[in-house]
């Protein structure tokens, strides 16, 4: 699992590549949660290179959603492959997380 942070305007973009499994979830938790729990923050996860998510990955994402709601921040997930999008829908996470097809257009629209 690779996590590459970058900045796009007021947004922090974390580009995720590989598998969001147990070990990857711990890395993402350490990278993502402090940003959202320290105050209102805007974080976008670029998931276009993400292959797979386990339950522990889903749990980190749900926890992150809870944190951003509590602190008035923004969190979006962009560029999920169709297979991964199905995966999120089966888990019901599409009803909770903000999923967008494309990072650039989503950030442009949010600006």
């Amino acid at each position: 699992m690779q996590i590459t942070p970058s900045t796009r305007g007021s947004w922090t973009v974390l580009t995720l590549a590989g598998k969001l499994d147990n070990a990857g979830s711990e890395e993402l938790r350490a990278e993502l949660l402090p940003r959202l729990s320290s105050g209102p923050a805007s974080v976008a996860l670029d998931c276009s290179a993400l292959d797979y998510v386990t339950s522990s990955g889903f749990r980190v994402l749900l926890q992150a959603e809870k944190e951003q709601r509590k602190h008035g921040g923004r969190l979006l997930l962009a560029g999920l492959t169709p297979a991964l999008r199905n995966f999120f829908e089966i888990a019901g996470l599409h009803t909770v997380l903000h999923l967008v097809p494309d990072l650039d257009s989503a950030l442009a629209a949010e600006r």
Binding site: V53, S55, N86, F87, I90, G92
Partner: peptide
Amino acid sequence: SLLESLDT
């Protein structure tokens, strides 16, 4: 995906 979803 069924397995991981149900676990979640």
